[in-house]
Nucleic acid binder design. Sequence first.
DNA 1: CCCTTGACTTAGA
DNA 2: GTCTAAGCCAAGG
Length: 113
Amino acid sequence: MGYFDRIWRVVLTIPRGKVATYGEVARAAGHPGSARQVAWALRHPAAQGLPWQRVLGAGGRILLPGEAGLLQKTLLELEGVRFIGGRADMGRCGHRPRGLSASRSSNRSGCLK
DNA sequence: CCCTTGACTTAGA
DNA sequence: GTCTAAGCCAAGG
């Protein structure tokens, strides 16, 4: 299994309507502190087909520049991710890979109220 | 082997 | 809220 394979694996576990940060994905993939490599992996040609749009920067910020960033936000909104002041609502839509139990009360896939 | 490049993160000012 | 600096690490030149 390659280095990026783990990252891609984790990204695929992010359910529709939820998002995760680069750091979270890196940690869940077994590469703590390698958030940048997550971005690298997503940018990689072989990453075609996975839900890249569900990976955001810390705090739910979109880091992908230009039109792509706009597209990302649009795709997420269509999935039901709520945005507040340019940031994804991590409180509701933040996916936490690797177990971790927090606020499971309303664990629906979408974040639409 | 050294240097640069990122869709990063955290801590401070 | 913003901005800067340092730490981070694989890939590519």
